[in-house]
Design a protein around this nucleic acid. Sequence first.
RNA 1: GCGCCGGUGCCCGAGCGGACCAAGGGAACGGCCUGCAAAGCCGUAAAGCCGCGGGUUCAAAUCCCGCCCGGCGCUCCA
Length: 514
Amino acid sequence: MISLYDTLSGEVRPLELREPGRVDMYVCGPTVYDHPHLGHARSALTYDVLRRYLEWRNLEVRHVSNVTDIDDKIIERARREGRTESEVAAEWEAVYFDVMGRLGVLEPHERPRATEWVDDMVGFIGRLMEADAAYVTPSGVYLRVRDVPDYGDLVHRSLDDLRASAGARVEVDEAKEDPLDFALWKAAKPDEPSWPSPWGPGRPGWHIECVAMSLAILGEGFDIHGGGNDLVFPHHTNERAEALAAGQTFAGHWMHNAMLNIDGQKMAKSLGNYRTVEELLLEHPDNARAFRLLVLQTHYRKTMEVTPDLLASARAAVQRLDALARRLKAASTEGNAVEPALAECVESSLDPGPGSSVPHGVTERGSIVLSDGDLEEWRTAAEGTAEGFSAEPVSPRHQRRFCAAMDNDLRTPLALTEVFTLVRRANTAFDAASPDGRIYAAMAIELAKSLGLMDEGAEPAADSGDAEIEDLVARRQAARDARDWATADSLRDELSALGVVVEDTPNGPIWHRA
RNA sequence: GCGCCGGUGCCCGAGCGGACCAAGGGAACGGCCUGCAAAGCCGUAAAGCCGCGGGUUCAAAUCCCGCCCGGCGCUCCA
């Protein structure tokens, strides 16, 4: 049973799926006109982790995320650069997905572009007009907010309250019936791209695209609608109003991630502490995973801090995971992956309890290296019957706690606790030359993978320098065997000059790039 | 002004009524391991009793009231 905080009801509620076994989620994506910043990254990572976890629990996820490729900012940039809006949007859309990909964010299954769905939006507005929920003014088509039942429910504010602050910052269009009414369709202005409509040429208002596309692609009552918490009002409130006014059932669950602070202050261009993801990635090769870890170490509904120190600390933690992965690899005799069997073990300890509507288990994952014997041992160990093993039932217990934490509104900081506890147990067991080491290590890595913390096709594949390095490592080992420390140390210096770190283990030396 | 969210050790950050837990990560220091390292493990005491002041309770970091401080939102915004 997986529960998530629902902004609308204001409480953590079980995720009731429209269709058992499948989760349909729509997440508000970027407006593509500039470099993606760390805030975009946090948001994308939040939903990436949700998706990965749901999939890891064997749910089929359909993840849709829009690309807003027409709006004021894009028009402005296009004008400034003397290009077309679609050129600007195409450029930044490519940058966005490239950057997110480098952060390990899985691509949404569908990423509809607003400009390709204008017909649907026009159709949707047409239905609102027919229902007399909207009206036309010289500047466009507006939704009549006062007729929408429970308009302010998502922000938990009354209509009067909202009305009181409406216009406080933005000039109110006198033609509107009510200051809260918002544009569904903006009448074309000179030199702006426009599309035809029954109300004259123009372009869609901000909110209509998400309603039209989410309902068209996922259908009524889809499971989760997500985005940053700055979208709760007005964006999501207005999307919801449009859907309600059209008589359509909208999202079942509203999910919002919190913002982030840089060096203790909100990140803003005006404060000069605006950080792009590209800068982050350039700074250090491990920053992609370090940032993900940082995101995971803070609950998604809480403002997170980003400072150079925190990033460095997260990098150290990530390296700890990598070190364990190397240890596991070195300790595994033959590289025969027996993945499905391990998955079975994992699944056996994932029992969500009676009455759960959520299927459980794990999807197939590659690259955990264990022998068949290990698995058998693990299984019996889990039953607490095998001699020489103490891993039981500790390992499954950590996993259960991990799932319990994740199931309870994605408490990733708590879930990580289990991962790192497993890491320590694994290392302790390895130190003691206990067979438990591989079990703990495999489990720790499996859990880390479910959060996207371990690179998928892990093995970076031998590159050209490897033969040379292997040779140096071997010669150093030979020198050590001959107790020729001077030679051994100078060879280690050579390796370190190549950016290679050697670690001596009971199973012989292993090395990795720093 | 209205609404919301936080204030826990050197830093980040769990815990949200009692137990194994004030978790986990990072930093620092000491020790073990090591030919030396790296990695790893172990330990760190009397000023962390959980922003401050009251209250509820047999029992509160956890609930209630007030106050102080910080952050965010109120149609640009992840």
